[in-house]
Design a protein around this nucleic acid. Structure first.
Length: 424
RNA sequence: GGAGAGAUGGCCGAGCGGCUGAAGGCAACGGUUUGCUAAACCGUCCUACGGGGUCAACUCGUAGCGAGGGUUCGAAUCCCUCUCUCUCCGCCA
């Protein structure tokens, strides 16, 4: 959520950001006007209430309170009427402001590339190069079904489409990745967390997932709870409504969780297999940072994610998302895209964002620099480190061998008890 | 799921319907005293929003005692609803 006073002080900055995101700027003008109306109403209301308080006070001091009250009753009744009318005016304006301001996305960082769609994204780094296969590389679902480690048929029976069952070495490889990711995060200074996988509405709202336009989350029908769409939600909201000691910052958290998303929309051929699922698993990394450090933190967070791919020796590139492609909460985002031989393209495997104070304002996460200092909002950052299913896909496809078996990346061998090949 | 107790400022804890932003204590901060520490004494010490302002260290106003309603000229104090926390019993991993 944007700062209301920002709209008053610098509406032009908000307009510019919306424009760069390719969104309608008209909302800004309306908000500025509503803000003016609301403030004017408050000023009048406060003055009327002050007048009423003075009269009430005079009754308290009167010798004969009953008589004093009777005498002032008409005057007070008239004030009550006026107050009610002015307050209604102010409340209406405030309600509309709340409604509208919640729908404005975060202010883009200056360094975000211009552009309205993904074609304008900028590649900032490329690591490794796509492997040359002396045979036609197979897609992961073919490899997985042949090896008996991926089972989409039975997943359909158990749950439906867009679910998968991992068995045998598929399940073990998945678990190895999770352990590998968490170990590396631990080394990089992240504190490991096992959060609830189901959260309440306030939590979901506080991290900006619940807006008018998003209904990608699974909502329990009999309770007002949501299945987490990403560990970003519980990790970021962990310190909701708290004032942290500035000396504790930055705070780094990591968690492994399942993630649940409706992923409404057409099932295309590029979403075949494990790429796009209603349930997937992810290790997430979250930072709570002092404002002045958050963009440096974004670089570190992104590097932490990149190193995982480097250790796994999976070719990838890092791209800086342009304004039109940057998410609602983010001021700036780097996506990591891993090479998928079967599709012959780079595919998103991690997304690292600096949400600045946008989530912190909603979630009311603040800190004090000094014991007596005024509380300030922290900056929140989140990034995948990494998406487990997609990493599994990348490993299977990049490490496949002519006979359909899969070599285990060196970094994962210890996590598979020394096993170096996934075969039949 | 059943029964009971409670919710006041950073913490503890008072509070008769009117001068209570809220006694008192602790903690914290500034100062005096002190060889150092401790103690003692004095002072400061909530937040949000709005108005005025040399926009900052100022000032005025409004609101806030779990949340939301109601009664009243006036509510922390009376009434209603809700939420949450704690304890005991049951059930379970």
């Amino acid at each position: 959520m944007l700062d209301r006073t920002l709209l008053r002080r610098d509406p032009e900055a908000v307009r510019r950001s919306l424009h760069r995101r390719g969104q309608d700027e008209a909302a800004v003008e309306r908000l500025v006007e509503l803000d003016r109306v609301a403030r004017e109403a408050q000023t009048r209301s406060d003055a009327l209430k002050a007048e009423k308080n003075v009269l009430s006070g005079s009754i308290a001091k009167a010798a004969n309170k009953k008589a004093a009250a009777a005498e002032l009753r008409p005057k007070l009744a008239s004030l009550d009427e006026q107050i009610a009318a002015v307050d209604a005016e102010g409340a209406a304006a405030n309600a509309e402001i709340d409604e509208r301001i919640q729908q404005l996305p975060n202010l883009l960082a200056d360094s975000v590339p211009d552009g309205t769609d993904e074609s304008a994204n900028v590649t900032v780094r490329t690591w490794g190069s796509p492997p040359a296969f002396p045979f036609e590389p197979k897609p992961h679902w073919e490899l997985g079904e042949a090896l008996g480690v991926l089972d989409f048929e039975r997943a359909r029976k158990l749950a439906g489409s867009r679910f998968a069952v991992l068995t045998g070495d598929g399940a073990r490889l998945s678990r190895a990745l999770i352990a590998f990711f968490l170990d590396r995060a631990h080394r990089a200074g992240y504190r490991e967390v096992v959060p609830p996988f189901i959260v309440n509405r306030e939590t979901m709202w506080s991290t900006g997932q619940l807006t008018k336009f998003s209904d990608d989350m699974f909502h329990l029908s009999d309770w007002d709870f949501f299945l987490v769409p990403t560990a970003e939600v519980p990790l970021t909201a962990l310190h909701r409504d708290e004032i942290l000691d500035g000396a504790m910052l930055p705070i780094q958290y990591t968690a492994y969780t399942p993630c649940f998303r409706k992923e409404a929309g057409a099932a295309g051929k590029d979403t075949r297999g494990l790429i796009r699922q209603h349930q997937f698993e992810k290790v997430e990394m979250v930072w709570l940072s002092p404002p002045e450090y958050s963009f440096e933190a974004l670089e570190r967070l992104t590097r932490d994610a990149e190193r995982l791919l480097e250790e796994l020796e999976l070719p990838f590139r890092t791209i800086s998302l342009c304004g039109g492609d940057t998410g609602f909460n983010a001021a700036m985002t780097y996506d990591l895209e891993v090479w998928l031989p079967s599709q012959g393209l780079y595919r998103e495997i991690s997304s690292c964002s600096n949400c600045t104070d946008f989530q912190a304002r909603r979630a009311n996460i603040r800190f004090r620099r000094e014991p007596k200092a005024k509380p300030e909002f922290v900056h929140t950052l989140n990034g995948s480190g990494l998406a487990v299913g997609r990493t599994l896909v990348a490993v299977m496809e990049n490490y496949q061998q002519a006979d359909g078996t899969i070599r285990v990346p060196d970094a994962l061998v210890p996590y598979l008890g020394g096993q170096t090949v996934i075969g039949r």
